[in-house]
Amino acid sequence: MSNEHTMDITVQCFASAREILARRSFQMTVAEGTTIGMLEKEIRSMSSQLAELPFMLALNMSYPSRETVVREGDEVAIIPPVSGG
């Protein structure tokens, strides 16, 4: 639910983050002006395992700076250490 002070975003979970949270994605309501750095803290507070996981956050399929502000409808993804190749 959105009002003038909050906004809804979607969070995608991959690999170990998906196992920890036991879901592929979820909706999150955050305050206007929330930055990626603030969002990371909020996500880490959801689980003690997540608090220790060295993940990065992606925003709309790119790696943002910690100061980037999220917007209504954005897609954020929890990116645990990658292991391709």
């Binding site: 991959f14 690999a15 992606a58 790696y63 993804a77 990116i79 990658v82 292991s83 391709g84 190749g85």
Partner: peptide, 14 residues
């Protein structure tokens, strides 16, 4: 290329 791929490309052995 391979070193960077293993840092940033979101592909995982799950």
């Amino acid at each position: 290329f391979m070193d960077e791929l293993k840092k940033v490309v979101p592909i995982w052995k799950v």
